[in-house]
Amino acid sequence: MGAPLLRLDSVSKPSLGLHGVSLAIPMGATTVLLGAAGSGRTGVLRLLAGLASPDTGRLLLDGAPFDRPPPGWRGAGLWQPLGTPGRLRTVEQVVTAPVLGLPPRERAAHVARALTAFGLDGQEAQRVDRLGELPQRRLALARAIAPLPSLLLLDEPFAGLDQALRERLALELRAVLREAGMTAVLATREREEALLLAAHLAVLEDGQVAQEGTPQQLYDEPASAAVAALTGECNRLPGTVLALEEAECQVRLDCGPELWTRRGDVAGPGSRCVVAVRPERVAVAAMRAEEMGEGALPAALRDIIFRGDHWRLELELGRGGSLIAKRPAGSRVPRPGGPAAVAWDPYAGFAFRVFR
């Protein structure tokens, strides 16, 4: 990953829902802003696009104020949906529009490069209103990259597409951005999209960056229950902190069992918490907990669902606790109603403060 191209240093803009955002955007990589509605994703993009200025804090570009770009800076390009074609009726006209100020030979090269990147070469004369949904999305992306901006900004570019088309187009965009070595910032609320596209992932919550790093870092080492939930499916077992010991803590789950787990952002003994653990980290065995070994917890398998590449196991933990486990397809699993025990590595779970 490249050195930071842009830095947001304690940036606040309450009218955009931003309250002290600090974020480093690496050069030549895709940064994804992941968060729920109202988290501040779009506000960050508006600042980077120059459509608003921070009330407090600084935006730095290559270490200098954002409003003093260095030589060779080609500006920020903001992706926008096609909307109504209007007078730009052909594919070529749409992609040519943002590069009209270039000399003819350079302009033609930019247009050809953008169309080829998204598989639209040979369709230059095609009317936009006769394109299907997926080609229209490709065309909007081709228009955005045609000027080769120094910074490409995309706000929910796949919104409204079904899951299969979202993933297909996201993979195409990933390949294009990597080949071009372009710096991009994309805002989304979809975790699968974020994990697929991001070289650098930032989770936003309440107008602040809750955590940033690689997708794997945030998935494996979430800083809070909110980050854990946003980055992937996660069991959340409510309980009470009993004791703290360096990087670990002891928790009594509301459903009865006591366990040791990694210490997240929990407060001291007596405080309420949730223990978060990914379903694929939960081992399940058809035996009593005592037979499974130290750290195993008694459970009852209520249902098992075949999902193609894995089994999804729905278990009752202790007295009324609910737990999901995932096992690879082809693996042996207990039968519903029979004896079962569950276990996971203490470092695979985290005790976090309760969040809404």
Rank of each mutant, 00 (worst) to 15 (best):
L61P: 02
P54F: 06
L51E: 09
F66H: 05
G50S: 09
L51S: 04
R68D: 07
G17S: 07
H110R: 14
V44A: 08
T31D: 15
T56S: 13
E92T: 09
T90M: 07
A108W: 05
S15C: 07
L6K: 01
H19D: 10
T84S: 14
G17K: 02
L33N: 02
R87V: 11
A37H: 06
L60F: 02
T116K: 12
P54D: 12
A52R: 05
R87W: 15
Q80H: 12
W79T: 05
A29Q: 14
L100H: 05
A52F: 04
L61R: 08
S22R: 01
V21S: 00
T31C: 14
L115C: 15
A109Y: 09
T56I: 11
S22K: 03
P54T: 12
L78W: 15
L16H: 02
I25N: 04
D67N: 09
R107K: 11
L59Y: 07
P81Q: 11
R58V: 09
P103D: 12
L82W: 05
L16T: 00
Q93W: 05
P65H: 06
H19W: 05
L23K: 02
G101L: 04
R113D: 15
G35W: 00
L8N: 05
K13I: 00
P54I: 06
L61F: 11
G28R: 03
R105D: 13
T96F: 01
L61D: 02
S12C: 10
P104H: 10
S15L: 08
L18K: 01
E92I: 07
P98L: 06
V111A: 04
T84G: 13
P85V: 15
S39N: 09
G38L: 12
G28W: 01
R68L: 08
G17Q: 03
G63Q: 11
L48S: 01
R113H: 14
L6C: 03
G38A: 12
S10Y: 05
L59R: 05
P103H: 11
V91S: 04
L33H: 00
